[in-house]
């Protein structure tokens, strides 16, 4: 139950030259812990997340999820893996406009071939966990920004993921709501036992993290607080 990146290098073609977005990155995220990834803009944080999410295959290095090496997996296998093992909280809530809050969660089960009815109890439980039990029937345009982001988080947990990847979840929220969202992610990480990676540029969130990985020019500069006093 963990996420391990070993010696990951990712190079984007950049005009005539090449741009090294990730340079020999190694990162281990144990279950029930939250690793905050910080770094200046363009340092490679999102690239790191995309590689961990199996959305990009790195040039070299390995990404293991649940001790299973994902290198060499087919596209279909990676899709299945994402559906079963990875939860993603997008920077924008990315909710589907035609679905109610409850259905945003049910659709995850439907994608896995389960019936929406069978997924109902879990969807309700998760909506309750993010404090939106009363908003289950609302569509995205009827929800506030903070509520949308909480649906986004609940959706990421719908498939009971091993790995929870969160990309700047607070960028669209004011400080107080951002704080509440990060607290929620920390709480759910402990509760659900996920290996959580949180990309953020808001340093006030760092106190909640078990570890902090600072990315600079595609390299993990230093791990801090590896054993954060708790």
């Amino acid at each position: 139950m963990s996420l391990n990146l070993t010696g990951v290098t990712l190079i984007y073609p950049d005009g005539d030259s090449r741009l090294t977005a990730l340079d020999d990155v190694t990162l281990d995220v144990p279950p029930s812990t939250l690793t905050a990834v910080v770094g200046p803009s363009g340092s490679g944080k999102s690239s790191l997340l995309a590689v961990a999410a199996t959305l990009i295959t790195p040039g070299t290095g390995t990404v293991s999820i649940d001790a299973t090496d994902t290198t060499g997996m087919s596209r279909r296998e990676l899709t299945d893996l994402r559906r079963r093992k990875i939860g993603m909280v997008f920077q924008q809530p990315n909710l589907l406009p035609s679905l109610t809050a409850l259905e945003q969660l049910q659709v995850v089960a439907v994608l896995d071939g389960r019936s929406p009815a069978a997924a109902l109890p879990r969807a309700r439980e998760l909506l309750d966990a993010v404090g939106l039990a009363g908003e289950a029937g609302r569509r995205p345009h009827q929800l506030s920004g903070g509520q949308r982001q909480r649906v986004n988080i609940a959706r990421a947990l719908m498939n009971d993921p091993t790995v929870l990847l969160v990309d700047e979840p607070t960028s669209a929220l004011d400080h107080e709501r951002g704080r509440a969202v990060v607290d929620l992610i920390v709480r759910l990480t402990r509760l659900r036992g996920t290996a959580t990676v949180l990309v953020t540029h808001d340093t006030t969130h760092l106190a909640a993290a078990d570890r902090i990985a600072e990315v600079r020019d595609g390299r993990i500069g230093h791990h801090t607080g590896i054993e954060r006093a708790s």
């Binding site: 959305l55 899709t79 299945d80 994402r82 997008f90 995850v108 994608l111």
Partner: peptide, 16 residues
């Protein structure tokens, strides 16, 4: 396209 990208990221197969 945006919705489709999200669904794919959530693990929807292209066929479905």
């Amino acid at each position: 396209r945006g919705d489709v990208a999200v669904l794919k990221a959530l693990g929807a197969s292209t066929a479905s």
